[in-house]
Design a binder for these strands. Structure first.
Length: 563
RNA sequence: UGGGGUGUCGCCAAGCGGUAAGGCACUGGAUUUUGAUUCCAGCAUACCUAGGUUCGAAUCCUAGCACCCCAGCCA
């Protein structure tokens, strides 16, 4: 189990910067971070990396971490997303010091903009977006000044006020910072800081604003207003840092948070961009944001991942500035490590094949003790009914076995887990030659002891047919069938959706589970022995249907050897 | 061809001038009524390349090379 008190403190370049700042006596020894999502989608595992980083720092340095919604674009945002984000952050195990919205600062932001105008550092520009793009220049050519760049302060003040009151149409004017149209950094070529969205209905402020501030302008000031000391964001904002600093320097704000950038997480066999995840949801290529195959926090929760395993993952992958693609095996190891400790063991036959025990009386029911966890006797036992009709998994029987096969073969013996050794005497088939039933006999002298004079190599799981709980089980596999869907997409010039794995969801509707599983509750985690880790699907359960999701398979060296 | 970044094992990632941590993966082997777990062993004469400085360089200098990001009234 991932006990936070025994897990060594993570170390990374950002924590080193903080250590150095503390040692230098910066910020009066205060450490204040924030997690600033835009509520335009659900959080994913990449956000978890940022959450664990920001909240983790606050925890370890006795600092604070705010949750702040970066809600400056009402066109794309929705209250559904703010609710899901709050839930996901808390589920991950964190509690924010303060909950804020950038929209809380709209009045102040407006006043700062007026100040910028008065300072001669911002102007209203009447260029439309195409004209603006033309004058912006290119990566290699400098831009040209806007014809509106030298309006008087009074004129700018008047125009900006009229933008605010809704006098002008969307797109007709913007407020721009007056910096340098020839800067090699395009972000400094008089960036737009306010635009008109007259008819937008903002989830927090309703229709009270006709103009909305842009990210670059809003973020630094929001950080400043909250007294953030270290403003941690991803690498693509590195080029924006001069603008972040320009706004605060120009306005001579009382404090100046330090922006630090780290590289975002990439995970094999999935996509992480919100645009793409949103598209998968909207085109119904998946079952909503919480589809168990999605890399969203909500999806992984439904799949059966634990907060502990996700935090462990985030700490294992580290924080750097180098581009990275993390292998799925790391995530899988995190969840296996956690679930191996806590999951109760059960037997579940996913692809039932009927077995009749010819030497067992038809009316006999024997209750056998089975440990809930092989390494943890304190977790107790349960009793499993053993009768003359059983189900075993079709994959555990082969007529023509490959060499090394340790399971059941005609005439061969196998150990029934938690029960007796059984021999296959007869194979029954239908007219098409499909195996429909096995007629076997068990050795009553082998309960808890090995048979004498022979070695039984294999152990398989089973369920009493008469007592079986018939339940649907859903098996999941990677969402995409290539490690890097984005790269494959551009390389083969196809939509990334062309690489979706058609076999990523395999519903098994006729599974036979041991009786104890009928009492499973939403929070229980199970190991179905020899199969993997499973939990009830929370969404189906709410709909009144019991379905088990496979979180992850067990490590399977036999299956691997066959490949 | 402008600017900003990054290059250490298959994948992450320590290292901060004193002679290559760790995790995942992988390969052996032991124990096992889960082909699971656990355990034990192995796994970079080598740090993008080439020069240079130094007693000593992954760490400093110089010149290259490769990859990523930026031309939204998105964040």
């Amino acid at each position: 189990m991932n006990d936070e008190t025994t897990t060594p403190r993570p170390t990374n370049f950002i924590r080193q910067i903080i250590d150095a700042d503390l040692a230098a006596g910066k910020n009066q020894g205060r450490v204040a971070t924030r997690f600033p999502p835009e509520p335009n989608g659900y959080l994913h595992i990449g956000h978890a990396k940022s959450i664990v980083l920001n909240f983790g720092i606050a925890q370890d340095y006795n600092g604070s971490c705010n949750l702040r919604f970066d809600d400056t674009n009402p066109a794309k945002e929705d209250i559904e997303y703010v609710e899901s984000i709050k839930q996901d952050v808390q589920w991950l195990g964190y509690q924010w010091t303060n909950l804020y919205y950038a929209s809380d600062y709209f009045d102040k932001l407006y006043d700062f903009a007026v100040q910028l105008i008065k300072l001669g550092k911002a102007y209203v520009c009447d260029l439309n977006s195409e004209q603006m793009r033309e004058l912006r220049g290119t990566l290699t050519q400098p831009g040209k000044d806007s014809p509106y760049r030298n309006r008087t302060v009074a004129e700018n003040l008047g125009l900006f006020d009229r933008m605010r009151t809704g006098e002008f149409a969307d797109g007709s004017r913007v407020l721009r910072a007056k910096i340098d149209m020839t800067s090699p950094n395009i972000n400094l070529r008089d960036p737009t800081i306010y635009r008109i969205k007259k008819d937008a209905d903002h989830h927090q402020t309703g229709k009270s604003w006709c103009i909305y501030p842009m990210y670059d302008y809003t973020h630094c000031l929001s950080d400043m207003l909250e007294g953030i000391t270290h403003s941690i964001c991803t690498l693509e904002f590195e080029d924006h840092r001069p603008l972040y600093d320009w706004v605060l320097d120009t306005l001579k704000t009382p404090c100046h948070p330090q922006q630090i950038e780290f590289s975002r997480l990439n995970l094999e066999y999935t996509v992480m961009s919100k645009r793409k995840l949103t598209e998968l949801v909207q085109k119904q290529l998946v079952d909503g944001w919480s589809d168990p195959r999605m890399p969203t926090i909500a999806g992984m929760r439904r799949r059966g991942f634990t907060p502990e395993s996700l935090r462990d993952f985030c700490n294992r992958i580290g924080v750097t500035k180098s581009d990275n693609v993390v292998e799925m095996s790391v995530l899988e190891d995190c969840i296996r490590t956690d679930l191996n400790e806590r999951a109760i063991r059960r037997m579940a036959v996913l692809n039932p094949l009927k077995v009749t025990l010819t030497n067992c009386p038809v009316d006999k029911i024997e209750y056998l003790d089975a440990a809930n966890h092989p390494q943890k006797p304190e977790l107790g036992n349960r009793q499993i009914p053993f009768t003359n009709e059983l189900y075993i998994d079709r994959n555990d029987f082969m007529e023509q076995p490959p060499k090394g096969f340790k399971r059941l073969i005609p005439g061969g013996e196998v150990r029934l887990r938690n029960a007796y050794v059984m021999r296959c005497d007869e194979v029954i088939k239908d007219a098409q030659g499909n195996v429909t039933e096995l007629r076997c006999s068990y050795d009553a002298a082998t309960l808890g002891v090995n048979p004498e004079g022979r070695k039984v190599g294999g152990v398989i799981h089973w369920v009493s047919a008469r007592h079986a709980v018939r339940t649907e089980v859903r098996l999941y596999d990677r969402l995409f069938n290539v490690p890097n869907p984005d790269a494959a997409s551009s390389k083969e010039n196809k939509e990334y959706t062309a690489f979706l794995n058609p076999g990523s969801l395999q519903p098994l509707t006729a599974c036979a589970l041991e009786p104890a599983l009928a009492e499973a509750t939403a929070t229980d985690r199970f190991q179905f022995e020899r199969e993997g880790y499973f939990c009830l699907d929370e969404k189906m359960l709410a709909l009144g249907k019991r379905v088990f999701n496979r979180t992850v398979t067990l490590r399977d060296t036999w299956a691997k050897a066959g490949k």
